Amino acid sequence: MGFKLLSKLLVYLTASIMAIASPLAFSVDSSGEYPTVSEIPVGEVRLYQIADGVWSHIATQSFDGAVYPSNGLIVRDGDELLLIDTAWGAKNTAALLAEIEKQIGLPVTRAVSTHFHDDRVGGVDVLRAAGVATYASPSTRRLAEVEGNEIPTHSLEGLSSSGDAVRFGPVELFYPGAAHSTDNLIVYVPSASVLYGGCAIYELSRTSAGNVADADLAEWPTSIERIQQHYPEAQFVIPGHGLPGGLDLLKHTTNVVKAHTNRSVVE
């Protein structure tokens, strides 16, 4: 069995187990497998329904001669939608809004960016022009300005110390501490036991640490421990890039980060 097929099978099995364990909360999309990078042309966006009122959005972007996937989250909030992270750029984010209108038909009224990198804030200006209120932590807003990236308009308070959590509509926002970046936030959907790890969490097929220019490698494993301790009931975990899975993604990420750190020390 090929690795790609095995990865998709694991996603399907995880979703099936969740649907059985929580039949009222989960209505997993039966329309197909989780979209992969090879299936999404740059400039297009796919939506994948995880649970009743919960979707991931998947886009792709060219970077350094390669094409990478990027995940975000959409959560229903009454007759409105909360968006977590842009679709990595203005063109993708405009396509995301169009796809949401086509498939869901509810307005996106608020959006949260989970850290300051372009795959999370690139497209904020498109959201703002569409009347979406954009939010991020003060740290993310400051770092985005320093980096020359787009800056969300509103500040999220109460997320300055490791372990801080605040309720934001249908989700809980959690600051686990520094990891992929010093400002990275985690998003949890309690009604569906869905954990969105953003770039602080890796997919299972990833074996290298990737972009760690703004990471705190020493603190990252401790931050992941905080996530595990705060959300032990999480059933569906979405990484910032690639295929979702279960809580095993947290341990896998820790292993990859520690291996990278150990290699760096040896070198």
Results as ranks from 00 to 15, higher is better:
residue 249 L to V: 06
residue 174 F to S: 04
residue 133 A to T: 14
residue 241 H to F: 00
residue 138 P to W: 15
residue 233 E to D: 12
residue 34 Y to K: 13
residue 131 G to C: 04
residue 9 L to G: 07
residue 198 G to E: 02
residue 177 G to A: 01
residue 132 V to E: 02
residue 210 G to R: 07
residue 178 A to Q: 14
residue 61 Q to W: 13
residue 10 L to N: 10
residue 259 A to V: 09
residue 167 R to L: 06
residue 160 S to P: 13
residue 267 E to M: 08
residue 99 E to L: 14
residue 93 T to C: 03
residue 49 Q to T: 12
residue 39 E to V: 08
residue 152 P to I: 13
residue 45 V to H: 02
residue 76 R to P: 03
residue 193 S to I: 04
residue 28 V to N: 15
residue 132 V to R: 01
residue 257 V to P: 00
residue 134 T to K: 01
residue 251 K to Q: 15
residue 201 I to Q: 01
residue 45 V to Y: 00
residue 254 T to L: 13
residue 13 L to G: 06
residue 15 A to P: 07
residue 134 T to A: 07
residue 106 L to N: 15
residue 47 L to P: 04
residue 237 V to D: 01
residue 40 I to L: 15
residue 39 E to D: 09
residue 258 K to D: 13
residue 182 T to N: 15
residue 250 L to S: 00
residue 124 V to W: 03
residue 200 A to V: 08
residue 82 L to Q: 05
residue 224 I to Y: 00
residue 241 H to V: 00
residue 57 H to W: 01
residue 173 L to N: 02
residue 109 T to E: 13
residue 122 G to V: 08
residue 200 A to T: 10
residue 66 A to I: 14
residue 132 V to Q: 02
residue 248 D to K: 10
residue 151 I to N: 15
residue 131 G to I: 04
residue 223 S to R: 03
residue 72 G to H: 00
residue 139 S to V: 08
residue 75 V to R: 03
residue 157 E to H: 13
residue 37 V to I: 07
residue 121 V to T: 05
residue 4 K to T: 09
residue 135 Y to S: 04
residue 263 R to M: 06
residue 6 L to Q: 06
residue 100 I to M: 14
residue 255 N to F: 12
residue 35 P to W: 11
residue 209 A to E: 07
residue 28 V to Q: 13
residue 235 Q to M: 05
residue 234 A to Q: 01
residue 179 A to G: 10
residue 184 N to V: 02
residue 27 S to G: 09
residue 26 F to L: 10
residue 35 P to I: 08
residue 35 P to T: 14
residue 265 V to E: 13
residue 232 P to F: 04
residue 1 M to D: 03
residue 245 G to H: 05
residue 174 F to V: 04
residue 32 G to A: 10
residue 41 P to W: 07
residue 12 Y to A: 12
residue 199 C to R: 01
residue 2 G to C: 05
residue 192 A to H: 07
residue 43 G to M: 08
residue 255 N to A: 14
residue 55 W to T: 02
residue 254 T to P: 04
residue 255 N to K: 15
residue 249 L to Y: 04
residue 8 K to E: 07
residue 47 L to H: 02
residue 78 G to C: 06
residue 45 V to Q: 04
residue 25 A to Q: 09
residue 113 S to H: 15
residue 161 S to I: 11
residue 211 N to D: 06
residue 219 E to D: 12
residue 172 E to D: 07
residue 249 L to Q: 02
residue 54 V to G: 02
residue 155 S to K: 06
residue 178 A to C: 04
residue 87 A to S: 12
residue 122 G to I: 06
residue 235 Q to S: 09
residue 108 V to M: 11
residue 136 A to T: 04
residue 208 S to A: 10
residue 2 G to R: 06
residue 196 Y to C: 03
residue 240 G to T: 01
residue 193 S to V: 07
residue 243 L to V: 06
residue 213 A to Y: 14
residue 99 E to C: 05
residue 116 F to Y: 10
residue 33 E to H: 13
residue 171 V to K: 00
residue 205 S to D: 06
residue 100 I to G: 01
residue 148 G to I: 07
residue 79 D to K: 14
residue 91 K to S: 13
residue 109 T to K: 14
residue 139 S to E: 08
residue 209 A to R: 09
residue 207 T to D: 15
residue 241 H to R: 02
residue 21 A to F: 10
residue 93 T to G: 00
residue 241 H to W: 00
residue 6 L to C: 09
residue 224 I to L: 14
residue 258 K to R: 14
residue 57 H to D: 04
residue 149 N to E: 11
residue 216 D to C: 05
residue 212 V to F: 11
residue 251 K to W: 08
residue 96 L to A: 07
residue 123 G to F: 01
residue 220 W to D: 01
residue 109 T to W: 14
residue 177 G to K: 01
residue 195 L to S: 00
residue 164 D to R: 10
residue 194 V to H: 00
residue 156 L to R: 02
residue 118 D to Y: 06
residue 43 G to Y: 15
residue 125 D to K: 15
residue 223 S to P: 04
residue 188 Y to I: 05
residue 182 T to D: 07
residue 114 T to V: 00
residue 24 L to K: 07
residue 205 S to F: 07
residue 211 N to Q: 07
residue 15 A to H: 06
residue 250 L to A: 03
residue 255 N to L: 13
residue 222 T to S: 12
residue 127 L to H: 02
residue 25 A to V: 09
residue 26 F to A: 08
residue 252 H to Q: 06
residue 94 A to P: 03
residue 85 D to A: 00
residue 92 N to K: 13
residue 56 S to L: 12
residue 245 G to W: 02
